[in-house]
Structures are given as C-alpha cells and as structure tokens.
Amino acid sequence: MSGANRRTPGRLDRAGIAKLVAADIPPGSYVNLGIGQPTLVADYLAPDAGVILHTENGMLGMGRAAQDDEVDHDLINAGKVPVTETPGASYFHHADSFAMMRGGHLDVCVLGAFQVSFDGDLANWHTGKPGAIPAVGGAMDLAIGAKQVYVMMTLFTEAGVPKLVPSCTYPLTGLRCVSRVYTDYGVFALGGNGVEIRETHGIEEPDLRDELGL
C-alpha cells in the first residue's frame, strides 16, 4: 500500500477517467471496450498507438461510430451502435470472437461495474433486485479472459456508498479478475498486495482511505 504517486486537485469527469485509461493501454494492444462508459476510451487512444479494437459481435479493427451515410446496420458494435471499419479489419463468427476472449488473446478489456472488491472480484451484470431482468452478455467471458481487466466507474453510488468494497454484495461476474480500477476520485491497482492507490483526484489520500475503509 504505497502512497499515491499522482494527484490532482479536482475530481475527474467521465472524459478525464477515459483519458487515464487510454493512456495506460500499451501501444499495439488488442482491446475490448465494454458497452456504456468504456466506449469513451476509444476517443482518447492515440491514432499512432496501433491499438486494435475488438467487438464481441465478431470484428477486430473496429473504427469510430458511423455517421450519416456511413450507417450500415450489418456493421454494429456490442452496444448495437453502427460503427465503421479500419483498414485491416476482420470479421469472424461468435465462437471465434469468444475464443479470443476466453483463450487469453485479448490484452486489455475495459468494463463498467456496480462493485469491485478489494481482491478484484467484479459485479457488473445484475443488481439482483426484484423485477430486474438479468442480462449478462459477454461480461463473464471478458472478465475471465482478457489478460488485464480494467474497470471504469464512479467511486461512489449516487447515495454516496463506495463501489470499491471489501466484498461484493451484488451477484458476481468473475472472481479476482480486475487488475485496475479507474474512478473519478482515484486510480487503484488490485493484486497480491491488496489495494494500491495509484492516483488521487479531488481528495486527499488519507480521506480516501477513510472513505473506503482501507
């Protein structure tokens, strides 16, 4: 639990979090960005970094969102939004697409989360509330398959309850699978040494530790 090595006075917005994630993705990586907030990361990847985006519905080399007459409903991303091809893109069927995940071929995936535990358990598919319709999609496959699983989320719920927790109370997506957590108040590395605070934003480290019970 070494001290934070980077701090800024202000809490980050979603774009700020996405920039941090993008900066931590090694050049040349094969990357899957989960639906929702993680798709923002694509906007901050350096064009010359050679990062190749995978989408679970059968494509490597996914480009930006399609506009106007580029829209082709046979060319969509995991969030079912029309996208574009980059040069060198490829298409493949679902079993191959998930072999890329489950076989450990993807370098990084970026997912949203309801909760992450201190030892890297992930809960991001189901609230378990009455009337909620469970829908897992590819989340469990990504969680156990990618070499590095980065989570991007707000650190607290709207009610102010921490989402980085000693033990998840929501139904789990995967066990001990998250390596880093990027949030509005800080960046955390999870692993053998417990929770390491890498960065703080808009909060002092001792206060952050207090809030999270670290």
């Binding site: 489950r102 897992v136 590819g138």
Partner: peptide, 9 residues
C-alpha cells in the same frame, strides 16, 4: 441466461 461465450461454445 447464458454467458454469450458459453452460448456460442
């Protein structure tokens, strides 16, 4: 509900 990779596999 089946994880998508399990559905495919």
């Amino acid at each position: 509900v089946v994880p998508q990779g399990n559905l495919a596999e």
